[in-house]
């Protein structure tokens, strides 16, 4: 079977580099899926076949792994993705309030995308390893903590800029 998804030349090179790290091809699966998501924003169904072909795996194996891990997306997300920590230390310091505020601000429930497509967000039960700055969230690559409602407002405004904003990667 052929697939419509392709790596960019740079990512193809990166993929070759990934392969060299492991004695067994299959071990490259997680890094390869990360690379797909970095290029495309999520892992579309065509990419499952593409990755399966690359790594000589049945496509069901790719699907099984893809759906096991919570950081992989299988549908289009907002331009920025937010994950709010709901684990114990954050809950003790107001994660519930943070979650309510974010939902009201973005006018969409956890798991959804804001109407302008700018932000998607989810409340996650896992501790993100940043309890010293509870309550906290992850926005794209970075952690933001000690968040009052106003801090959240400012944070979102900062990321609402036009495309080309240096903060946006």
């Amino acid at each position: 079977m052929s697939s419509n998804f392709q790596f960019t030349p740079e990512n193809l090179e990166e993929y070759q580099d990934i392969l060299r790290r492991y004695p067994v091809k299959r071990a490259a699966l997680l890094p390869t899926l990360h690379l797909v998501q970095a290029q495309h924003g999520f892992v579309p169904a065509e990419a499952e076949q593409f990755v399966a072909d690359l790594l000589d795996l049945p496509v069901v194996d790719v699907r099984e792994v893809l759906t096991f891990y919570s950081l992989f997306h299988r549908r289009e997300m907002g331009r920025h993705h937010i994950r709010v920590c709901m684990s114990l230390s954050c809950w003790l310091r107001g994660a519930g309030r943070l979650k309510r505020h974010l939902g009201e601000k973005l006018r969409v429930e956890s798991g959804g995308v804001s109407a302008d497509g700018q932000f998607s967000w989810e409340a996650v039960p896992d501790c993100m390893g940043a309890c010293e700055i509870a309550p906290m969230l992850q926005l794209d690559k970075d952690y933001y903590g000690n968040l009052g409602n106003q801090d959240v407002d400012q944070l979102l405004e900062g990321f609402n800029g036009p495309p080309g904003d240096p903060e946006l990667e």
Binding site: S70, L71, F72
Partner: peptide, 19 residues
């Protein structure tokens, strides 16, 4: 890629092997 169970040492090995 976001799974607490991969901190358990053998869950980690499976994950590293691409499963």
């Amino acid at each position: 890629a976001g799974a607490y169970i991969c901190g358990e040492e053998t869950g980690l090995l499976e994950s590293l092997e691409g499963k």
